[in-house]
């Protein structure tokens, strides 16, 4: 207690500076968290969240009833891991290249261009994708036929989607993510590079011995932030690219699309809360574990 008061006194100004954010989060995030209990209730409007009767784990059952729950959990994790690796890696490479490449105009133009996909909503990406991949008149099969190859039915071939979805994800997010790394590189002390130049280091050596170590904290934070969302699927991306195509579900169904599909008829607020709660708990366990490891190895980079 005494320690606490001393700390408050010593860093009084810092705690005051924290107040706006702490209060906002308390009001907007923690207060409504009472709604989590909806997942365990048989919700009736006129009885309210508190007054409704308890349902135990009944609202969770649909998720595991057909065995699909495990498959979509696996798919969600796998896609997030693949996307995390491809997108982050590409973003880092592009940030480094953009930083060191010659030619100001080229730099500016290409940097702007790679940001564009961010603005194209998945609905429209889905329309384009259908124009590329559809069997009869798609661009892909047009090209294959012109080359004398056999056309492929992308919309009936699940395994192809393990390639297609990460590609679209990278296409959409690399430009956006690279901005973070570009900013991190900008913050590196130029003196480091100057002394490396004097030592005769070449551009690859500078990248590996100065740039990458300097942005290590940012890289790890980005990885941790992504791992904290490892159970959440980008609903719009999957839904707009794949649609309700049952033929592809073994490779494209993630938790969010599965829950949407299950609850779209006779939707039930309690059951969707249950699914969200399941995602949250798993994310929580995984991130606490991973963060614990990071904190041991490199305390500065840990999230908390």
């Amino acid at each position: 207690m005494n320690n606490f008061l001393m700390e408050m006194k010593k860093n009084r100004m810092l705690y005051i500076m924290l107040l706006p954010a702490v209060l906002l989060v308390l009001l907007l995030n923690y207060l409504p968290m009472a709604g989590i209990i909806l997942a365990f209730k048989n919700f009736r409007y006129n009885l309210g969240i508190w007054g409704s009767e308890w349902a135990g784990l009944r609202n969770f059952r649909f998720f595991f009833l057909s065995g699909t729950g495990w498959m979509v959990t696996r798919n969600t994790i796998l896609y997030n891991l693949i996307n995390l690796l491809t997108t982050q890696l590409l973003a880092i490479i592009i940030a480094i290249v953009l930083n060191d490449i010659r030619g100001r105009l080229f730099k500016k133009l290409s940097q702007s261009a790679i940001f564009l996909p961010y603005f194209i909503s998945w609905i429209i990406v889905g329309v384009f994708a259908y124009n590329i991949f559809n069997y009869e008149s798609g661009l892909l099969n047009g090209a294959l036929k012109a080359l004398g190859a056999k056309p492929v039915n992308v919309y009936a071939e699940p395994s192809l989607w393990w390639l297609i979805i990460p590609s679209f994800n990278a296409w959409k997010w690399v430009g956006y993510t690279s901005v973070i790394y570009i900013a991190a590189i900008t913050g590196i002390d130029p003196e480091c590079y100057e002394s490396a130049d004097i030592d005769g280091a070449n551009i690859f050596q500078k990248t590996f011995y100065i740039t990458l170590p300097s942005i290590r904290t940012t890289i790890i934070i980005m990885l941790l932030l992504s791992i904290g969302r490892i159970l959440r699927g980008d609903f719009q991306m999957f839904y707009q690219l794949v649609g309700n195509n049952g033929q592809l579900f073994s490779a494209t169904d993630v938790i969010d699309t599965f829950v949407f599909r299950s609850l779209v008829t006779g939707g039930d607020l309690s059951m969707s809360s249950a699914a969200t709660f399941y995602q949250s708990v798993l994310c929580f366990l995984i991130i606490v574990l991973v963060n614990g490891v990071v904190r041991r190895v490199d305390p500065d980079s840990a999230l908390f």
């Binding site: 889905g126 329309v127 259908y130 991949f133 559809n134 069997y135 009869e136 798609g138 039915n153 992308v154 919309y155 009936a156 794949v242 649609g243 309700n244 195509n245 049952g246 033929q247 592809l248």
Partner: peptide
């Protein structure tokens, strides 16, 4: 279409 299930 052979892609009917993804047509919107």
């Amino acid at each position: 279409s052979k892609s009917v299930l993804s047509n919107k």
